[in-house]
Design a protein around this nucleic acid. Structure first.
Lengths: 187, 187
DNA sequence: CTTAAAATGTGATCTACATCACTTTAAAAC
DNA sequence: GTTTTAAAGTGATGTAGATCACATTTTAAG
């Protein structure tokens, strides 16, 4: 059975068995339990994570103590704090597990080394980066344009599994509404 | 006097005279007058623009006829609709000039050709793409976290020139508040 | 199994911001 | 310079969604 990461990369570029083994050798695998942190506020993030199994969130707590969720991550998704990872500055956000999770991670050094030796990975990273940006752009548009109910419906249609796996108050923190309001949106 | 685009690129990678000339040969220059479109809703965007001089906005009109502004662009900024440019799908947004503007543009083909022949441009594009993503990420956080007044103050501090150059109702459309509310934020 | 701790729902009330309506001011266009 | 059009300010009123308070249900922990 093909490795899920291989499937994931091959959605963008084609790989031989040796190439994939070479790629995989640049990653490490870890397991984390529910409520464990991958990144804590203040860390300088050295790794980019790919989710084999589980569910995570990247979020931050504002000065009123309210949590805001930037991203959820599930199987086959990448997650990290890009700002900290790219600029090597202290992270404003935390990333933690909503479920027990299994992850692969790659450091910036390994990523650079891999890309240098295997040039076509550049296309993979570039494409992923572009997609991430487009998703964020659409989220900005949605926050500017849509009501709480509309944002809720869009998310529910796009990621129905999410609603089975994460508490509603986190959905609320992602959508930018209070949990009370979210609870009333169904009716 | 060094070309402003050269200065801009050299903030990230170093260039010889020949290299810059080679880069520049992949661009075309155009002038547009105030109110003219660079991209109209429905277009499949073929170009990425770099602003030599002037001021532009990328925006879209929702089904209630309200304008929402995704991005402003001024001197030394890049502007395009990434979603359409990357995926070659119909653009949801329009880009038009707030002032008479002078622009350089590069097509996807020229960009690929340039990058293929001059590998270090890859690093330049990658970095720009990352910065764009980080900016969007922070905008999402700001929309989730901050009040209209707070978002206004942040923007005013970050880009004071913008407030001299664009009508307030456009600032409002960028911040996600009505122009009436924006007008009352000062007091 | 029992107890503690989250998660969720729901009413009552409050408030930031939207919308509508109209006036004033400034900038294009002729 | 005069007219037209767009920008900006401001009051009155409406409303989506926040906040507070408490009850109920579900999940986790001892």
């Amino acid at each position: 059975m093909t490795h899920p990461l291989r499937k994931h990369i091959e959605e963008i570029i084609h790989l031989t068995d040796e190439e994939f083994e070479f790629i995989l050798s640049h990653f490490e695998q870890i397991k984390k339990r529910k409520h464990q942190y991958l990144v804590q506020e203040g860390d300088i993030v050295k790794k980019e994570f790919w989710i084999i199994k589980g569910c995570l969130k990247s979020s931050f707590i504002d000065n009123e103590g309210k949590e805001h969720i930037l991203q959820f991550g599930m199987e086959n998704w990448w997650i990290t704090d890009y700002e900290s990872f790219v600029n090597q500055t202290a992270s404003k956000i935390s990333i933690d597990c909503i479920e027990d999770s299994e992850l692969l991670y790659i450091t910036a050094e390994n990523r650079d080394a891999l890309t240098a030796k295997m040039h076509k990975m550049e296309r993979f990273w570039a494409k992923k980066s572009k997609y991430g940006r487009i998703a964020l752009q659409n989220r900005v548009l949605s926050l500017l344009q849509n009501s709480a109910k509309e944002r809720y419906d869009v998310l529910l249609n796009q990621y129905p599994q999410l609603f089975q796996r994460v508490p509603k108050k986190m959905i609320a923190a992602y959508l930018g509404v209070s949990r009370e309001t979210l609870s009333r949106l169904n009716s």
